[in-house]
Amino acid sequence: MFRRLHKDSETLTITIDDVAMTLPAGSTVAAALLASGNMVCRKTPVSGADRAPYCLMGVCFDCLVEINGEPNQQACMVVVRPGMAVKRMPRPAPVAP
């Protein structure tokens, strides 16, 4: 969906759903998703629809992902670290009525 304008000097590697990806240092996790070719980050709890980052400035809370086992992190506010494991989130198991 998005491409990088430059070849960056300093890079690091993370995984998104166990697929390795190399990125410039200082990128946010949301930027990594956008550059990954599949910007979807989760399914919504209410309808199960796919969502992707929307505002990239921390106000819409659409970009929630699991990072290193912690669910519901705002991808656009978290900077990548070497070895970070990012996972797209499934719809949470609904409470039985």
């Binding site: 998005f2 491409r3 796919d50």
Partner: peptide, 24 residues
Amino acid sequence: TLPGVMTVGAAQTALKAAGLVPRG
């Protein structure tokens, strides 16, 4: 709410902070 719809500000942030521009 569809993936593929974002704000102009978001696109600008992607550009400024990460040097990212749309492919298509």
